[in-house]
Simulated scan of single mutants.
Amino acid sequence: MSRTDFQLGKPVSAARIVVAMSGGVDSSVAALLAAQSGAEVVGVTLQLYDHGEAVKRSGACCAGQDIYDAAQVCEKLGIAHYVLDYESRFREGVIERFADDYARGRTPVPCSLCNQGVKFTDLHGFARELGADALVTGHYVRRVLNGGKPELHKGRDPARDQSYFLYGTTAEQLDLLRFPIGELPKAEVRALAAEAGLPVAAKPDSQDICFVPDGDYAGLVKRLRPETEAPGEIVDLEGRVLGRHPGVVHFTVGQRRGLEIGGHAEPLYVVRIEPEERRLVVGPKPALAVAEAAVTDWNWLGEDQREVAVKVRSLSRPVPATLEDGRIRFHQPEYGVAPGQAAVVYDGDRLLGGGWIERTVSATASAPLRAVA
């Protein structure tokens, strides 16, 4: 008996469910729950790298070993499994954008880009072509019906909530999407996998960005955008030269490590990056405080609201803010806000929408910090 109500609007025996399978335990248990429902289930895995490169990777997502693991799970469950070659789409829409953002001094969020592109937009289209009644993923979020209208809510386990990365989900996609593990803690997900004898029950979670499994972001960007390795000046807020750096690719806003400029009364942090001048501007921690952020490319799932809570990093807590004309005004100065990040808006547990931060306004100055182009 399935532990999940997939809310298909028809008998499950007459339904078809497509499951996005990355090869990890989360999507595998999502497929298990779908198979237990009695519906016809089809597993789909995206191949995002060429085969020769993918087989070398482990601990990532949609890599060679992961494709094999997804196939093994599907065989165990007795469901069909397809592999879609999305390598070129992923390179253009995620990897190249990631490198461009770093080259422009921005702080990219590639997981959000991936979900907005190949993982939801393209998979949604594929599921529709197959005549699916639901597209299931292993994300820790919840789809909640309110008066018959679906809403996107945080995962029940706050330590696993992935809603920040899914702010770009559209209303049309949410009609088809289902998230069967969103109500569960990770320990229960692993227990279900072990109980069913799935070969990935003890498989470690993926770490870092999937296409940089060794965590060497700078190495990837240097290969794709070699100009980012050019050395340059480190200056203070008044423009005084304090030292030199080995290349802007090694730094993001808020970073302290690697500056190697001693002799100051208080620690200094990267306040902004000026890539065209190959310059890092540094200052004390109060200089990182942000009062406002201008946000573009909004995706909105909820009703218009002015008083909301906002997250600017996946692991941060939502903080009170006011929305007006595409701008976010934080009620208290917020740290760790940088162009390129996603600003995600909530009303309690409900995700209302979000967009990309284009520029910020310092809480310690009336003029906006320079926006990276």
Rank of each mutant, 00 (worst) to 15 (best):
Val19Tyr: 03
Tyr102Ala: 10
Ile79Lys: 00
His124Tyr: 15
Gly52Leu: 04
Gly263Cys: 04
Gln255Arg: 13
Gly215Phe: 08
Thr228Val: 15
Arg317Asp: 11
Gln332Leu: 08
Val55Ile: 13
Arg91His: 12
Gly340Val: 07
Pro180Phe: 02
Arg178Leu: 03
Pro108Asp: 11
Arg225Asn: 09
Leu48Trp: 13
Thr364His: 13
Glu227Trp: 02
Glu307Asp: 12
Val308Ile: 15
Leu123Gln: 02
Leu280Asn: 14
Ala30Phe: 02
Thr137Met: 11
Glu324Asp: 01
Arg244His: 10
Gln36Cys: 01
Val361Tyr: 15
Asp347Thr: 03
Gly138Thr: 10
Ser13Ile: 05
Asp214Thr: 13
Val200Ile: 13
Lys186Asn: 14
Ser206Lys: 07
Tyr140Cys: 08
Ala99Asp: 08
Val118Asp: 03
Gln116Pro: 01
Gly52Ser: 10
Ser88Ile: 06
Ala99Cys: 15
Cys62His: 10
Val18Phe: 00
Val337Ser: 04
Gly131Cys: 09
Val282Pro: 05
Pro286Met: 05
His264Phe: 07
Met1Val: 12
Leu237Ile: 11
Gly336Ala: 07
Glu195Ser: 07
Ala60Ile: 08
Ile357Ala: 02
Arg128Trp: 06
Leu259Ile: 14
Arg106Met: 12
Val19Gly: 00
Val94Pro: 13
Leu113Val: 03
Thr364Gly: 04
Val344Trp: 03
Ala343Phe: 08
Glu233Gln: 15
Glu277Gly: 00
Val248Asp: 12
Lys222His: 03
Glu358Asp: 15
Gly182Trp: 07
Glu53His: 04
Leu280Thr: 09
Ala39Thr: 00
Leu8Phe: 01
Val282Tyr: 08
Arg313Pro: 07
